[in-house]
């Protein structure tokens, strides 16, 4: 499978403090890859760098064999990388429909309505609440909306930042089922998650991050069996 995203020796720094140190990885088309690790391991900073929100201090990123290292956020989004931000970042005073329309902001084609219908197959709940103000949705529904909104831009790569954050356990299960379905439909997904157990369950491959560096990478199944990972992240 051809590689869709490739990062080489990527370093992200905030005023001298290195949040991500010399990280290299790649994501192939159609894969669901997770990055797990503790709070402050640099997972979110890595995502921010991938979509241009945090500048790369060193290293290079390539998307579809083109450099995106120094591109501004809106350019990267236009190339097909969609971010579902941490804490969902929905437009709470817009309606659900307006939120979905914002997701298609970069598009000018006529298939937007059809895509919205497709999104409703995955997220039937959103159709019921189409005219409702997004801020009044429950946390889980907001996360669904955030994912659906990101898909409206027809991305080639979906970046999910802590989709389980602040959700009830039952809702978390539901969100992960949805992520698995989106992946099955052919979407390439990079998932950053603290809930290592669930993340490894849905993913094909995984990277373990520790204080800014990748310490392990393997098939998700192998990682889930790895003694160190079990001890550090799975509560054994």
């Amino acid at each position: 499978m051809p590689s869709l995203l490739e990062a080489r020796n990527l370093t992200v720094a905030y005023g001298g403090i290195q949040a991500v140190k010399d990280v290299s990885f790649e994501i192939n088309e159609g894969e669901l890859v997770c990055f797990i690790g503790a709070n402050g391991a640099g997972k979110s900073s890595l995502l921010k760098a991938l979509c241009g929100m945090a500048p790369a201090a060193a290293g290079a990123m390539h998307f579809q064999n083109q450099s995106i290292t120094h591109l501004p956020v809106h350019e990267i989004v236009r190339r097909g990388i969609a971010l579902v931000p941490e804490g969902r970042g929905i437009f709470s005073r817009m309606t659900v429909k307006e939120n979905l329309e914002m997701g298609a902001y970069t598009r000018h084609d006529l298939a937007i309505d059809a895509d919205m219908e497709k999104a409703f197959v995955l997220f039937p709940r959103l159709k019921e609440r189409l005219k409702q103000q997004a801020g009044t949705l429950s946390g889980g529904e907001q996360q669904m909306l955030a994912i659906a909104r990101a898909l409206m831009g027809r991305p080639k790569l979906l970046l999910l930042d802590e989709p389980s954050m602040g959700l009830a356990p039952l809702m978390v299960q539901k969100i992960f089922e949805t992520i698995r379905e989106v992946s099955k439909a052919g979407m390439t997904i990079l998932l950053v998650e603290q809930n290592a157990k669930l993340a490894l369950e849905v993913s094909q491959r995984g990277y373990v991050m520790e204080s800014g560096a990748i310490t392990l990478n393997d098939d998700a199944e192998a990682l889930a069996k790895n003694a160190d990972v079990r001890k550090a992240y799975l509560g054994d």
């Binding site: 956020v73 809106h74 989004v77 970042g89 929905i90 437009f91 709470s92 902001y105």
Partner: peptide, 13 residues
């Protein structure tokens, strides 16, 4: 509403 999210929508904020 949310500048970060707006950026993620591809808006040149």
């Amino acid at each position: 509403e949310d500048e970060t999210a707006a950026e993620a929508m591809g808006i040149n904020t």
